[in-house]
Amino acid sequence: MARISPRLIKDAYSISPLLPYFLRANPNISLAKQELKWVQEELPQSEWRKAARSRHNLYPLQYILGSQPFGSLDIICKEKVLIPRPETEEWVLRLCSVLKESAQNLSIVDACTGTGCIALLAKHELKDSAKVAAFDISTDAYQLSMLNRDAHKLDVNIVKADLSEPAQLMHICSSFDLILSNPPYIPLSDYKLPVTLNGIEKSVRKFEPKSALVGEMEFYDLLVQNLVRPFGASGFVFELGYREQAEFIRKQFCEEEWGSGILKDYSGNVRCSIGWKRGSNLDILERLCDEVL
């Protein structure tokens, strides 16, 4: 990480003695000032100093404040569960606006739900036109997603289950139309590298759960073999971080039966693999694709 210049620290200090503590996580004063403003708005004064110290240590702001906005929901965030990302928020909202136009009575499952953000926002947006379920292997994620569900009073069926145990998944529901997931997708080799080498942010490595982040192809394989196929789904949206993962998923389906494409995020990065059964009511998913595979 680049060293912060003494000049910058002095400038920050003259605005507020707490501001310099935000410079490690935000190398520019405007962003640091904003974070301090949010801390001061959302926490009692007695906690500002502690918050500033934690932030200096690169502890995630969302764990300090206890939440992350996701669409129009405020998602409660706690240690040991991954913080929802804006790229995820973006594709979930895009997906819902396409589904709202036409799809009715959908049965949806969100695999590897973490805080529950994807399932809860989908239910919030689609209301009675969708039945939504979600599951995660981690007890912390399971408990937090239940807490979030109750906080927003949304009717989502949440279960603690392992994607690699088909027997556990059978309990959730007998069939699903649409499978959504943001599984761990960072190969271990990249997990160890800094952002500048296409690795990950120090704050993420230090404080977010490794078990929510590290994965390569195995989760996509499980999603297809244990959910899409046995549950008779006609569509899926899987978040990912690499084009190779989208190509791997494409190869699992025969082209005559399934259409497939890629969604890019607001930064232009490959972000989701999308699939739809040709001729089904979910072929509207094609509209989400920036590129057909």
Binding site: A25, N26, L31, Q34, E35, W38, P60, L61, Q62, L82, I83, R85, P86, E87, T88, E90, N182, P184, Y185, I186, D190, V195, N198, G199, I200, E201, S203, V204, E208, A212, L213, E239, G241, D265, Y266, S267, G268, N269, R271
Partner: peptide, 20 residues
């Protein structure tokens, strides 16, 4: 409409941005 969240870079699970 554009979302400016630190330009390029890998994004997604690898980064935790607070501004939007």
């Amino acid at each position: 409409e554009k979302f400016l969240k630190g330009g390029r870079g890998p994004g997604g699970q690898k980064i935790n941005k607070t501004n939007s």
